[in-house]
């Protein structure tokens, strides 16, 4: 959570976004991309690779997701590229399916969190008054409990399942989205064109969707990347603790836990799913960094 404290400034600054840069349709985007640093290219290609693997998982994987195909903990071989796990399932297959499950669940959670937090944040920004105050204080209290601890407590009440996991993390994470969308929404809500829309008698939903939303897109997109990383790491940590995504679903966090004992024999296999998690978060961070740089014209030194 210190992550967002550190990022808050550049993200907020991204509001002062130079629209001209992206105005020209695809041409502008391509011009920006060509000048992108190596790190951004690295990030984009890694994300692209993961998405392809996630979509065509059944075509790449040699075996079924939960199919027992060999003995327990078999070594790396031509038949099993990364060996087998504690039940004799092919590790490579599970890694491939893990891309689909782990990333899919994290993306779904982040989208839910943005839907909830973004809507409430914009609502608070437009309406102000007691609604804004009430929501703000509620979020303050919810954020006073560390997120992982809160999630653990809620999971012990409702029981671990994918549905509960997604809902709990989405609700807890939406508090952060609320803070940002309210703050950047506020800046736009005081502008004349919003006032004009109100006087025209536009409905609340229209003002939020058509007047505010387009003007706060850049910081929200950057925040989506960062929140995705955070949600992805939280879900992986919970799965690693055995309280997140449950077997037999192939998932990277649980795979680390299931194969962790191999570490004691000097085997690197359990580091593969952990590395897969790390590579994706690093890639997303690289892209977000570049995006913030692009949209805010921000440089490190002033």
């Amino acid at each position: 959570m210190t992550l967002e404290a550190e990022r808050a400034v550049p993200v907020a600054r991204a509001v002062a976004f130079r629209a001209s840069r992206w105005r020209g349709p695809l041409a502008g985007a391509w011009r920006g991309l060509r000048k992108a640093p190596v790190s951004a290219w690295f990030g984009l290609s890694v994300i692209g690779g993961y998405l392809v693997v996630a979509v065509v998982a059944p075509l790449i994987a040699p075996y079924g997701e939960a199919q027992v195909v060999g003995n327990q903990y078999e070594a790396w071989s031509a038949q099993f590229p990364f060996g087998t796990d504690q039940l004799g399932r092919d590790l490579f297959t599970r890694l491939v399916y893990g891309a689909r499950n782990t990333i899919g669940i994290a993306v779904l959670t982040t989208m839910l969190s943005f839907l909830l937090g973004g809507a409430l944040g914009l609502l608070a920004a437009v309406l102000g008054g007691w609604i804004d105050q009430a929501l703000g204080r509620l979020v303050d209290v919810l954020m006073a409990i560390p997120q992982l601890i809160f999630a653990l407590m809620l999971l012990s009440i409702f029981g671990p399942s994918v549905k509960n996991l997604v809902l709990i993390i989405a609700v807890l994470d939406s508090t952060r989205v609320f803070r940002l969308s309210r703050a950047v929404g506020m800046n736009v809500a005081v502008m004349d064109f919003v006032e004009a829309a109100k006087l025209r008698g536009e409905r609340l939903g229209w003002i939020m969707r058509r007047e505010l939303l387009p003007n706060i897109m850049p910081p929200m997109v950057a925040e989506f990347g960062l929140r995705f990383c955070f949600v992805f790491l939280t879900i992986s940590a919970l799965s690693f603790l055995g309280l997140g995504i449950q077997p037999p679903t192939a998932d990277w966090g649980s795979m680390v836990r299931e194969n962790a004992t191999l570490i004691n024999y000097g085997d690197v296999t359990p580091l593969l799913p952990a590395g897969a998690i790390a590579l994706l978060t690093v890639a997303v961070n690289c892209v977000v960094d570049w995006f913030i740089h692009q949209t805010s014209g921000l440089r490190d030194e002033h």
């Binding site: 992550l3 990383c229 790491l233 992986s236 940590a237 690693f240 966090g253 680390v256 962790a260 570490i263 000097g266 690197v268 359990p270 580091l271 952990a274 590395g275 998690i277 790390a278 978060t281 690093v282 997303v284 961070n285 960094d289």
Partner: peptide, 17 residues
């Protein structure tokens, strides 16, 4: 920047290994 993006258990297991 990389260390921030890594899950804690990866760092832990790499050190352990």
């Amino acid at each position: 920047l990389t260390a921030i993006s890594l899950p804690e258990f990866l760092i832990a297991y790499v050190l352990m290994l």
